[in-house]
Nucleic acid binder design. Structure first.
Lengths: 332, 332
DNA sequence: CTGAAAGCGCTAACAG
DNA sequence: CTGTTAGCGCTTTCAG
C-alpha cells in the first residue's frame, strides 16, 4: 500500500480510501491511485485491515461437511458458496469424514482464521466446546445433524418423518418384514431415521422386537456383506429400508448379487445419482441439500446482520420419489 | 493474548512463546499459560501473527474447481484437503462453474486473503493476469486444464491419449461411424479430447470431415436433445464417444429413449457413478482425480519448501474400464 | 528463562 | 478533499 501511495504521489490513507470506495476523493486522484494499484498488481491485505476495522469482519465462512465426496455434501457446499459469493464472502470447506477429532480440529482451524460464522456438520458426542464462542457472538449453524450441549440454529431434514414415509410406502405394498440398514449409531441423524422407522412400524402393529435392524453400516462394502447375510437368514425380509446414500448403493449391489432386485422391495433415504436409470429404478426419500445449505447460509448472514432471536430448529421436508424398487409387492 | 498474559501473570511475549512451542520457557510457566488460555477459550489470531512473522505464511491454500457438484471436483478437493490437513493447512474452495468472470474474482478473493498457494481450474482465455503473482513467488498449480499465457506447474489427465484409447476400442469393435459429443469449445481440456478423438480416427483412415462432431454440450438436457437429433438423422452413428461426465449421462438417457442402448456403442470420458449397475454397464475412460489432486498439492508444497525448478506438466494416466456399453459391435 | 519496544499492513479518529 | 497519528494482535529484536 505504501508503494502504491508513493507511485501515485498521495498519502497512504488516500489509497485506503480509494480501495474501500470511501467518498471525498477527487476523480483525478482516484484514477491515479487505481492506475498505480494496477501497475503494481496490488491486492489489499484483507486480514491486516480487519485487525483495525470496526466490524472486524473477515468476510469468510467456515463450512464443515460430512464428506466432500458425498453428493449430499457437495450440494450443501454449493448452496452455501452461492449465497456467500453474493455477499463477497469466501468459504473454507473441510470434510469431517465422521472423525470426531477432525471436528474440533477443523473448528479450531476456522476460529484461528477468524471466520465470521460457522456452518457445521458434527459427529462428537457434544458440541459444548463451542459454547463460549457462541456466547461471544459468532454465528454457528448446524446442518444435517443436531448438536448436543449447545443451543443454536440447526437446519436438518425431517429425518424421522421421512423414514416413516418410507415405511408407510412399503407397508402399503403389503410388506410386514422390513429390514433397517443404517449408518453409524453415533450419528444423530442416523438415530432419528431409525426412530422414525421403528415408530411407524410400531404404529402399524408390527412387533418391533422382531424387525431386522443392522446398524453401523458406513460404506458400500460393509452394507453389501451385511445384507447378503440377512438375505441368507432363516426369515429374510421382503423389503429393505436403507437409511443413507452409500448404504443404499451397497444394498442394491447385494440384492443384485442374489438376483432379488425384482422381488425384494427397497427404499433408500437420500437420493442416489442415476437412480432412475437402474432397473428397477430406486425409490428414495429425497433430501433437499440445496435448500439446507441455502437456509444455513441465510441464518448465518441474518445473525451477522443483527438477528438475535434464540437459535431455532429449521426442518427441511423430504419427499418420496417413486421409481420402481419401492413398489415391489410382498409375496404371500 | 493480553488477557491470557494478565491471567497467567506473565508477559505477552511469554504467551506467544508457549503458543508457538518455542523453547526456553519453564514447565511451570507453560502450565500456567496453557491453563489461562483454556480458561479464556483463547484462539490465537493466525493472520495477526503472519503480519509480522518471518515467513508470512497463512497456512492456507486456495482451490478453484470446476464445479463442487461434479464428482470429479469432489474427488480433487478431497485429495487436496487430505494433503493439506497433514501439514496443518486449511483450504479455501470455490467453484468456477465455467464462468470466466468468476475465475479472476475467486483468485482475487484468495489473494486478498493471502493464501500461500493456488490450485486452479481455469476457463479464461488467458491466465496472464497471474504472471506478476507467480513472479512474486506464489506457487500456482493448474489442474485439469492447461493455462495459457503463463508457465506453471500443471496437472492434467492424458486427455488426447485417453480419447484415442476410447476410439481404438470402438474401432476394434467394428465401428466406423463414431459420433463425438463434447463439452464447451472454450475449455482447453475439451479441445484436447476432441483432438485425440479425431487424430485417432484419422490414423485409422476414417475421413474426419464426415465424423459427426457436436460440441458445446454442457449438461444432460442439452446432450439429450443433441443426441436424439443425431440418432434421427439420415446416417446415424453406430457408436458414441461422450467426452465428459454429464454428457455421458445425457447420452445414456438419449440412447434409452430410443431404445438403442443395446445396439449403439457408448464410451464416456471420466467415470460416472453407478456406471457398473446400469444395463449395459457404461464403458469409460476413467480419470484419476485423487491422483490429480494429490499431485497438485504435492507441487504446491514442494514450491513452498523451496523447489524452484521450472514449472512442468504432470500427466496423470487414464484407463479404460470395460463394462459393456463400449463392447457393442457395429452391425453390418 | 523473561519482558519491553518496534513494526507488520491496514483503518479510525482527527486535524488541516 | 487529503494527510498524520495511533493502534488492531501478534512476532521480532534485543535487553535484562
Amino acid at each position: 500500500m505504501k508503494q502504491v501511495a508513493a507511485l501515485a504521489g498521495v498519502g497512504i490513507k488516500t489509497v485506503s480510501r480509494v480501495i474501500n470506495g470511501e467518498p471525498n476523493v477527487s476523480a483525478a486522484t482516484i484514477a491515479r491511485v487505481t492506475d498505480a494499484a494496477r501497475a503494481l498488481d496490488y491486492q489489499p491485505d484483507l486480514h491486516a485491515g480487519n485487525l483495525r476495522r470496526a466490524d472486524g469482519r473477515s468476510r469468510t465462512l467456515g463450512l464443515l461437511v460430512g464428506s466432500v465426496s458425498n453428493p449430499f455434501s457437495g450440494a450443501v457446499h454449493r448452496a452455501v458458496e452461492e449465497a456467500a459469493i453474493e455477499r463477497g464472502v469466501a468459504v473454507f470447506a473441510s470434510s469431517l469424514d465422521d472423525d470426531p477429532s477432525r471436528e474440533e480440529q477443523s473448528v479450531s482451524a476456522f476460529l484461528r482464521r477468524r471466520v465470521d460464522g460457522l456452518i457445521l456438520t458434527t459427529i462428537s458426542p457434544s458440541q459444548g466446546y463451542l459454547a463460549a464462542e457462541i456466547r461471544r457472538g459468532t454465528p454457528v449453524v448446524f446442518v444435517d445433524r443436531e448438536p448436543s450441549g449447545v443451543t443454536a440454529d440447526t437446519v436438518v431434514s425431517d429425518n424421522a418423518a421421512g423414514a416413516a414415509l418410507a415405511v408407510r410406502h412399503m407397508l402399503a405394498h403389503g410388506h410386514r418384514r422390513i429390514a433397517y440398514l443404517g449408518d453409524r449409531g453415533d450419528i444423530q441423524t442416523a438415530r432419528e431415521r431409525r426412530r422414525g422407522f421403528l415408530e411407524e412400524l410400531g404404529r402399524a402393529g408390527v412387533a418391533t422386537s422382531s424387525v431386522p435392524v443392522i446398524e453401523n453400516l458406513h460404506d458400500e462394502a460393509v452394507t453389501f456383506d451385511a445384507l447378503l447375510g440377512l438375505l441368507s437368514s432363516e426369515d429374510p425380509p421382503t423389503a429393505v429400508f436403507s437409511a443413507q446414500n452409500l448404504v443404499t448403493i451397497g444394498a442394491i449391489r447385494a440384492l443384485r448379487a442374489r438376483d432379488l432386485h425384482h422381488s425384494v422391495a427397497l427404499v433408500g433415504f437420500d437420493d442416489v445419482p442415476l437412480a432412475d436409470l437402474l432397473e428397477p429404478g430406486v425409490t428414495v426419500v429425497a433430501q433437499n441439500p440445496q435448500r439446507i445449505g441455502q437456509l444455513a447460509a441465510e441464518r448465518v448472514f441474518a445473525r451477522l446482520d443483527g438477528d438475535d432471536t434464540p437459535g431455532a430448529r429449521h426442518i427441511v421436508p423430504t419427499r418420496l420419489i417413486v421409481r420402481g424398487s419401492g413398489e415391489i409387492n410382498a409375496i404371500g
